[in-house]
Amino acid sequence: MTAILEVAGLRKSFGGVTVADGIDFVLERGAMHCLIGPNGAGKSSFFRLILGEHAPDAGRILFAGDDITALRSFQRIRRGISVKFQVPGIFKALSVRQNLEVAFQHHLHGQSLSATTRAMLEFAGLEHEADLQAGVLSHGQQQWLEIAMAVGVEPQLLLLDEPTAGMSPDETRKTGEMLHDLNDRGITILAVEHDMAFVEQISRRVTVLHFGSIFAEGTIAEIIDHPGVQEIYLGTADV
């Protein structure tokens, strides 16, 4: 297996708060990997550093073997990284169809665009909501719409920040199936998630972040059995 994402010595501080404290992280191509950690561990900041929304104080980020540390966000997206935010980042005033068209029109026009939009509406289970304003969709539907939009840019790596936040158990299960489907088609997935049942459903390997650095890494079983992980979640470990 080759690495699709390599992060070396990544550091970032805001004043006295360190959100990334020398992170070294490797993600294999084709992986379905989860990132967990207590609130304030630096998970979302780590995503923002990968996406280029924050410039690191030190360290390097390599994507598919290329150094992308100095690239701007949109340039990283064009290289093949895509993201779904924790709060659905959709265009609420536009129709569901228009949301998808904006996402796909990078590389598609005319009939190809229409055909792909139809297929993705079906993929996201939103065929009957195509002409509705996206803002009126349920929370779960908005999450699926955003996943469909994120996939529309044809990414190699999909970053998901709490993709099931606010979803019902049934919606969560369906989202898990959706991500497995995308992963089977070659998209590497890195997800921040708190719901351990969902982590167990989708993930083969898990990384635990704590105070901006890697605390533990392994299979889901290894992480559950890790003596320090429960303690940092309960806030009792002196680490």
Binding site: H107, L108, H109, G110, S112, T116, E122, E177
Partner: peptide
């Protein structure tokens, strides 16, 4: 939700005539 992602990737990019596309807009 169903999984028709195959259909999505099977659709090939095709460039229609620029003039007709512009008029269509």
């Amino acid at each position: 939700m169903n999984t028709r992602y195959n259909d999505v990737t099977a659709v090939t990019t095709r460039r229609e005539g620029s003039l007709w596309r512009a008029i269509g807009h």
